[in-house]
Amino acid sequence: MSSGTEAETGGRQRLWSPVRVSGAVSRLAAAGALIVIFVVLSFVAPSFLTADNLFNLGSQTSVKAVMAVGVTLVIITGGIDLSVGSVAALSGVVGVLLMAEHGLNPLLGVLGGLAVGATAGLVNGLLVSRVGLPPFIATLGMLSVARGVVLITTGAVAVFGAPDSFRVLGQGVLGPVPVPVLLIVFVALAGHVILTRTRLGRYAYVLGSNPEAARLSGVAVSRHITAVYVLSGMFAGLGGMIAASRINSGQPNFGEGLELDVIAAVVIGGASLFGGRGTILGSLIGAFLVAVIRNGAVQLGIGTFYQNVLIGLIIWLAVWWDRYQRRKFNNEETG
C-alpha cells in the first residue's frame, strides 16, 4: 500500500508536531501564568520574594502537589476523588497518635499515616470497581466518613506529642532545600514513571478513554481501578503527614475544602474530567499556581474569600483556553 502522506506534506521533517504540542498547551499556559504571577508578586508584595516566604511556599505547595499526583491518576481513569482532604486529616491524626501514644518512631508513624490513607483509598476503589458506585458518590461518602472518624477519635481536639524528629518531614532542610520540596520532586517523579512507563499508568489512560476497549483487551479493570484509588489515598495520607509535621500536630479540621484546590490544580494542569488525559507535570504546575495565588494573596492582604473567587476564575480560564487551543489545533493547520 502506498503511503505518500508524510513525504508529500513534510510531516516528517517537522521536528515538533502541533498536535503533540496541543497536549502541552494548557500546561504551557499554566506555566506562563505561574511565571507572570510570580514576577508580579515579587514586585508588588515585598514580603513575597523573601527566603522565608519561598520556603513557606514550597512546603505549602508540597501538600497540594503530593495529593494532586494521586488525584491525577484517578481523574485520568475518568474518576474523581473528593475524599483526599478528609483522608489527609485522618492520616495526620492517626499518624501523630501512633507516635504520641503508641511510641512508634517517626518513620513508622509516617508509614502508618500512609497506610491509613491507602486503606481509605482501597475502600474507595472497591466501592467504585466492585460495588459499582459512581466515583463521585463513593468518594463523597468517604469524605464524610473519614472526617467523621477523625472527629470521633479526637473529640474534635488537636492531637500533639509526636517526637521532635517528626518535624523533619514538613520543616526540615537538606542543604538549602526544604524536605517537603524534595518530597514533591520524589513523588512527582514516581507519579510520572507510573503514568508513562507502567501497566497501571497505561491502563489508567485506556480505562479513561474507553473502558470497554480495555476490558476486551484483557485489562484487569477492577484491579487497576482499585489500585488508582489506593494510590490516591496513599498520597493524600502523605500530604496529611507533611501537613501534620509542619504544624507538629494532627488537626481534626485540617483539609476541609482542600480537595477542591487539589482538583483545581489537576484540571488547571490540563487533565480532563472525562478521563484519558492528564499529566503529572501539568498537575504540578497547577498545584504551584494555586499555592502561589493563595500565598501571594495573603502577602497582599487579600482575604480567603477573594482567593476563592480568583481560583474559580482561573479554573474557568484554564479549561476554556485548553478547549479553544484544542479545537484550533485539530481543525486548522498552523505554523
Partner: peptide
C-alpha cells in the same frame, strides 16, 4: 464503541493487547 481508545495514540492502541515491557517498565 469497544475497540479503540480514540484519544490515545496509534502506538498505544496497537500495543494495548501486549505491551512491550523491559525491566518491568513499558519499553517506549
Amino acid at each position: 464503541s469497544d475497540g479503540l481508545a480514540l484519544q490515545l495514540g496509534v502506538d498505544v492502541n496497537i500495543t494495548l493487547g501486549r505491551l512491550p515491557m523491559r525491566g518491568g517498565l513499558i519499553d517506549l
